[in-house]
Structure formats: C-alpha cells, structure tokens
Design a protein around this nucleic acid. Structure first.
Lengths: 343, 343
DNA sequence: ATTCCAAGTCAAAGCGCTTTGAAACCCGAG
DNA sequence: CTCGGGTTTCAAAGCGCTTTGACTTGGAAT
C-alpha cells in the first residue's frame, strides 16, 4: 500500500492524505479522521526511503562498533548501551544503524555514511586521548556526540561522560580511610580517555594521603577476566603486596576475586576490592547486598541520554555544544573492609 | 556531490555515469576510468535513499534486540553476534539496523519495518519453543532467518543453530565417563528453544547410563552469575550433592565457581564443571589452558554465517529453505576431573 | 556510396513521498 | 445576488537515483 493507492481509495489527493497523516492544520477534522481510519485499515506506512528522499533526512542514527586496539574486542558494554539508545531513539522516530570496520578505515566509513546520506548523526564510542575522529567528524560536518571525552581536544564538541576522575578518587579515598596504603589499580587501556582519567583520580587521592604511586601496583590492558586474574596474582606475589585493588570493570574484578581466592585469601577481609560497575543487565553486582563495593553508573542510562541529546542536536544544529556529566555512585558491598592488621 | 552535478562536471549524462559506476558493460573503458577517477576525486557516493527508492531495495538488514522474558535482560552475546553479522553484511553492501521494543509489540514492529520498506530482511534472535514470530514473519512475507530453531514449528523456515542437544549430551557423557553419577544442570529459561534442547541432551545421556534425572539437580532461569552461584550453593547443600555441574553459559559458570569456592571445595577436584562457551571476545575461557571444560561455539561466527545466508536468501527468494547446523567442540580445561572417591 | 550493426551515449520516466502555489469551495456580509 | 475571505483540496515539481527505449556514432560489409 502506498500513498497513491491509498489516496485513490479515499478519493482524495496525495497532498491531502499526506497532510492529514502528518498532522498539518489545513485539513478538516472530518477528512483527517477518515484518512487515519483508512491508513489503519490498510496498514499503510509511508516508505522510509521515499520520505527520507523528500525531506532530506534519513531518520537514522549511526553507531560504529568499537573494535578496539589490536584485537577486535567487542565491548561487553555495547549491548546495554545500544539497548538504551535505540529505546530513546525510537521515541523520536529514529532508527539506529550499526557499522563495523577495521580501525584504519574508520574515518572513511564516517565520510561514506555522510556522503551517502545514510545517517543524520552518529554516536562516537570509546574516545581515545586526542582522538582523531573528533576533528574528522567536525570537518565532515556530520552531527555527532561522544560517549566519553577526549583529553587534548581543543575545540568544542558534544559529549556525555561519567566523572571518572572523581569516582576513582572517591573510591581510592574510601580505601585510604579504611587504612589501606598499598592499593593496586587494574585499569583499562590507557590510550582510552576514561582510563587516563581514572588513573588521575587514583593518583590524586594517593597524593592527598602523601603516598607516591607505585608502578608495580598499576597495570592497564583490556579489561578481561584473565587480565584481572593475572595481574592480581602477580601483585599478590610481590614482597609488599597490595591490601586493596581497584578494578576498572566487573569482569576484571571477577578475575581479581579468582586470584585472591586461589592465593588462599579472602576478598573483603585479606584484600579489599572496588570495581567500576556499568550496571549491565546481564552482569548484576549481586542480588540484595552488592558483591563488590563499586562505583556504579548505568551505561544503559548513558545510552538513553546520549540519544536524546543527539536528537535534540540534530533538530537544532545551531545550538551551543551539549555536555553532560554523570556522577557515579559509590555503593558499598562485601568486598571491602579495614586493612588487615599485620601478623 | 550528487549524480547530476558529477555528470555535469564530466560532460556526460547521468545515465552513463551511473552505468560506469555500477559496472554495466555498455560503457567504454576510457569513460569508465574517467568517471571513476572523478567520483574518487569528488568523494561521490550515491545517496542511499535515492538508490533504494529507485531499486526498491533498502540494503538494510533488521535485527530486533532480544529483550527477553520479564526483565529487559540484554543478551551478553549480542555484541559479538552483531559484530560478526555486520562485518559479513558490509561485505555485501548491506547495513544493519537495530530495533528494540517491548515484547508485546514485537509483531507490530516487524509489520512496520516491512510496510515502511525499511529493511530487506531480518534476523530473528532467541527463538522460543513454538515461537509465534515465525508464522508471523512468514505471513508478512519479510525474508528472515532464525538464530536457533523453534520446536513445534511445522512449516519450513531458514535457520542456523548450534547442535545444542548433541553438545550437552556429549558433555554429560564426558562427565559420566569420569564416574560422575550426580550431575547438576543449570539451564537457561526453558521457554527458550535452545535450553529445551540442552536439557534433552542431558537427560538422554543420563538415560543412556541408566540414571533417572533428579529434579533437585535441575534449575533453569536467566543465565546470570547470581543464578549460577545461588543454585550451585543450594545443590551443594543437598544431602546428596552433585559431584559435577553443567552450566549453560560462562557467566553462570563463574557463579558456579564462586559457590564451589565459598563452600570450601575445589573446582575440578571436588566438583567438576562444564559450561557452554559462546567464545565471546571479552570473556575468554582462560589464556592457554581453558579454565572451564566447555562446549564451545563462536557466536560471532554464527553471526557471520547467518548474515551470509540471509543475503543469499534475499538475492534468491525462490531458493529452498536454508538450514545450517553448527557442531560445538568439546574443549577440556581444568574444571573437570574424575569423581572424587568417597570418604 | 549506401546499408547495417554494434558500441556508446542520452533524454525521460519512474520509484513514493513532501511541499509549493494555485484553485475550488462555502458562507456570511454587503 | 455578488463579493470577499477563510477553509479545504488539489496538481505538479522536486528529492537523487536507476533503467528503458531511442538516438548517435564509426566502421565493416555490400
């Protein structure tokens, strides 16, 4: 069913039918009702491509899958983020399109998406320190919003980010207050902007307590279970092992827990652990009492917020740059406790 | 840059330029080269919507996010699957579009996607036993392929699935061969078709050893870490606890491991564990030697295969139904061992 | 020279929608 | 009656592409 046949059935012109369906005022209530009823009856939906061609907008938001550094590690956070974003977009009549490319081609893909008119805007994931994609997108003139920030980017751009620096500062202070002095940091790849900020928060808190960061207690890599396990095992084998560990993700923290247990120690008593928790729907931090003390910020909610902002941005391109800082909450679970007394 | 201005710059008609770019034979090699060069120079890309409108195809594949039973639990497998699928689709010039809806509306969304001409085909995730979406899609006439199968569906349909029955049968036999007699099963929701088949494989293997399945050793729910933990804890507290446990996902298995350790037991010695492993990029089963003995099948690879098949299907709608069975491999890790001797 | 044919090129129609500018209608005021 | 003005409807152009059917060529065959 298309506009033409629908309007023929109604004995009206395409103009009138189109207007009736799109809520224009120059249509009498009687005809509007009649048209709407017919549209429902024949299950008519305007063809997306034709509509897009006529209006010049695609009503699609693009998102490039973060295939990160070296290995194509698909971010576990992706599913929840997309779920939130698509939900929000749907409310505004937008669809979400996923692309995936080798890292080198990413610029080419943005260019192409724009040249083809395939998307009205994009969400940029996993920003690096001095991320080249930001100037690129600006140059292309494709509306975009960044999930995170990029240190070293001079110009204005739209972003929504968690206050990673502050949340890791708070977490570190929390451990310091419990008497911990040797605190390990298992961070994400430090080419990623968020990881850089988390480390800053960590070292700032340490500095506040007069503690110099110890390189032997700091590791950074992809935040897998194995990474959490291996680095924790190494740290616990040190002459002066840490009494607490700060992990950058639940998955890494699970590895940390495994290493602690395999060393014959108990988490929360012998070694305290705090992790960042993206509040993933499929990886809950315990049922009632959280397993891990954690800095928590829902990535799903971030997806919703980013989508809303981007839609608003597209509607009003002249608007001032949009920025939005999310504060993570510090939830206390069973993985932290006072520093164990010696001997 | 659009076709019109490009052809004007070249002093050719739109017809010729279009044909040159699309590889039609009625264009001399000289002009073709000239056109291609100019297209590159001006970074020309045909507008997706205009092209789609003219050809009647959208070159987009749809995929509905599996918001499952009750809670909107986003499948952890989603990221890897989509990553594989989009990669394969890109190779054929297709894009992937994600939609997400409340469960009740799912039929409506498929109808709408089709009516709007937004997609040329869809991938159906997480099929249930007697899944109503299959007859619905058939009725709508939208090309589709199912990731999994649906017991009780009489008519033919296209699917790619792991041989879940056989892989759980093999895993169970493996445990039986090690002398285990009380084997727990932590299954997914048994409205899901895959879970039903896994249980069938499990009970068949038990039956082959003359063992009646014990309801106290079988649980099914969403496959979270907490689920794995709680049910394992319960089972280990039984008068006759299991000596081995079969888990339906890595995440659940991680919960199983935690429960085993908290009970003061050792995995692989006191309690054996086998899990299904989707080979997720961010949740590797150990580095060199697998942590868990597992039935392994890459969901990323499944994504690639499904995408390829769907594209072929759209190209040739008259083709016979496509089905493809993937066999999981049984990889032996450190989580299994002979049944512990009593006393 | 003329005819014919293949190779190369083109103008124009059409895909399904929105939107502009014009026309038709209706009703009360003059 | 006629006119004016708001209300309602319409025909047609345009969005950027593909594709049909026709029109030029240049050269080989007659």
């Amino acid at each position: 069913m298309n506009l033409k046949t629908l309007s023929e059935k109604l004995g009206l012109s395409q103009t009138t039918v189109s207007r009736a369906l799109n809520g224009y005022p120059e249509v009498s209530t009687a005809t509007r009702l009649r048209v709407e009823e017919a549209a429902r009856q024949y299950n008519y939906r305007p063809n997306s491509r034709a509509k897009g061609l006529a209006t010049g907008r695609s009503m699609v938001i693009g998102q490039i899958i973060p295939t990160s550094i070296q290995h194509e590690m698909v971010n576990p956070v992706f599913g929840d983020f997309v779920s939130g974003a698509t939900q929000a977009l749907a409310g505004h009549g937008y669809d979400m399109m996923i692309s995936r490319v080798l890292d080198e081609d990413e610029g080419k893909v943005y260019r192409e998406l724009h040249a083809r008119g395939a998307v009205d805007g994009v969400i940029l994931q996993g920003p690096l320190v001095e991320d080249p994609r930001i100037p690129l997108l600006r140059e292309i003139g494709l509306p975009f919003i960044v999930h995170g920030r990029s240190t070293g980017e001079a110009g204005p751009y739209n972003w929504v980010d968690v206050n990673n620096r502050r949340s890791f500062q708070r977490a570190t202070r929390f451990l310091l207050d419990l008497g911990h002095r040797r605190i390990g940091l298992l961070n994400g790849h430090e080419t990623m902007d968020f990881a850089r900020r988390r480390r800053a928060g960590y070292t700032e808190a340490l500095a506040g307590a007069g503690i110099a960061p110890d390189p032997a207690l700091m590791a950074s890599d992809e935040m897998t279970e194995s990474f959490g396990f291996a680095r924790t095992r190494d740290m616990l084998a040190l002459a002066a092992p840490p009494t607490a560990i700060l992990a950058s993700s639940m998955l890494a923290a699970i590895g940390v827990r495994r290493a602690i247990q395999e060393a014959g120690l108990r988490m929360g008593r012998d070694v305290s652990v705090i992790t960042h928790d993206d509040d993933l729907s499929y990886l809950k931090n315990g049922e009632d009492v959280p397993i891990f003390t954690a800095t928590r910020s829902s990535v799903r909610r971030a997806g919703i917020i980013l989508a809303e902002k981007l839609v608003a941005l597209i509607a009003n391109p002249a608007a001032a740059p949009v920025t939005h800082m999310l504060e993570a909450e510090l939830v206390v679970g069973r993985s932290t406790g006072p520093v164990p007394v010696k001997g």
